[in-house]
Amino acid sequence: MTLLTIFLVLLLVLTAFAVERTKDLLSAVIVFAAFSLVLSVLWLILKAPDVALTEAAVGAGITTVILLAVLAKTERYER
């Protein structure tokens, strides 16, 4: 369990860093959805299942779709 927790925290930091580094905003949005999903699994480990459920529905579902919708109306690449 401890090993799983450490692995998930490292994965979380890695996905956050990947969101920061990607110049392609579409990839950034997809990696941000993965970030939300890893975070919701971590909240399940921290025994907060209602927050995990909400984050999985909102962070990985609604926010991603709305970011993608806005991306379709604006520009895809950073600078």
Partner: peptide
């Protein structure tokens, strides 16, 4: 999720967000 909001994890906001996600999926 909505109907079991008072006995299990979840509730109005989580279930409503899932319903909204289903509607958005249909629209997409």
């Amino acid at each position: 999720i909505i109907l079991h909001g008072h006995v299990t994890p979840g509730g109005g906001f989580s279930g409503g967000a899932i319903l909204g996600a289903a509607l958005i999926l249909y629209g997409l």
